[in-house]
Nucleic acid binder design. Structure first.
Lengths: 186, 186
DNA sequence: TTTTGTTTTTGACATAAATCAAAAAAGGTT
DNA sequence: AACCTTTTTTGATTTATGTCAAAAACAAAA
């Protein structure tokens, strides 16, 4: 069965009609490392589920890339602003390894919310989880030193941590690459 | 009509049965400045809507209070972890002015989600909005200097900004009160 | 008005982290 | 192996911010 549906089901019951509708509308992509899943300014986007590989979400601010999240296999992800507001995306999503991605276009998803109200419950819960993650991230940035944030991220990500290039970790932690290198030296 | 229901309706249609159910279960509290709406460790909580006054959410970490959000009148708020996970609250919520608060207990709300599925849509959207706010907050903490964050907050809150004591602003921005004072001197 | 307690500011100094420039190390490619 | 590119580290220096102690300003209460 599709990874996307399996992940959705962790959040709540899905009727067989709803599952059919989802299955019919899921598209699967094979992407190469480095390719972009979504660009800033793009109007149409999707909700994605990663089956293989890992991706990052980042902003481009005056020539500089700012990494704001990473997602590994078996994760639901997307460009929140684009999805929630049906507006041009503010962020880029890039494959950091060769990836297999399942996607449901936003337009379709909005229709499915209407046709299958149970999806609202699933989406509510998954959004709630994301909120809790974001609160933790903000709290870390608000209260922890650079090295505390570094060790905290290691603990949070476990083995996946080592798949992320150091430059991207520094960006995500909001510190310079040099500082990160010095933290690691100890 | 109840402020809570009016705010909910901004996010989606509410049937009259659902409205009745909400109205029957809303409790209204009058609280004095300084009183706690919710304490860390408290198992039962509510989703709150502020009609008057303003409150803060904060954590207590090794004797120190860390402010993580402020809410002003006509805002939906609560202790996310407590609400989303039905667990003991991790945070405190305190009235910073005399307040009028409308509340729906969490237990009841979970029942209402089942009995009135349309509430899931409303809650999904309101949670989505909160996510976008959180992302902005995290981004600010990740990329901006202390003074940039300060001026950013002023812009974000407008007049309400001046209702917040400086100590709480410093805490929320993740800087020392002395640094805040020096930023303001200029 | 005086007293008391709290909030805010100031000054001196210590520490954390950024920046700039360059070297070293690691990975691919021919 | 030799070459090129990218990533990571190192050293020197600057800048931003924290800490500690005290003074000043403000607000509430007697």
């Amino acid at each position: 069965m599709n990874v996307l549906i399996r992940l959705f089901e962790q959040y709540g019951y899905i009727s067989s009609q709803c599952r059919d509708a989802l299955e019919k509308n899921v598209q699967t992509f094979h992407m190469k490392k480095g390719e972009l899943l979504l660009k800033k300014g793009q109007l149409s986007g999707s909700l994605y589920v990663l089956e293989k590989g890992f991706v990052r979400g980042y902003y481009l601010v005056s020539e500089k890339e700012i990494d704001v999240w990473f997602a590994f296999e078996h994760t639901i992800m997307g460009s929140t602003y684009q999805m929630y507001k049906s507006r041009a995306s503010l962020e880029y999503i890039q494959c950091m390894e060769d990836c297999i991605v399942h996607a449901i276009s936003n337009q379709v998803l909005l229709r499915l919310y209407r046709e299958h109200p149970e999806l609202n419950l699933i989406s509510r819960r998954s959004t709630e989880d994301y909120c809790l993650q974001l609160e933790q991230r903000a709290f870390g940035l608000q209260t922890m030193s650079a090295s505390e944030r570094y060790y905290n991220l290691i603990k949070e990500l476990g083995d996946d941590f080592h798949r992320i290039p150091l430059g991207n970790i520094a960006s995500y932690l909001g510190i310079s690459q040099e500082t990160l290198s010095r933290i690691r030296r100890v």
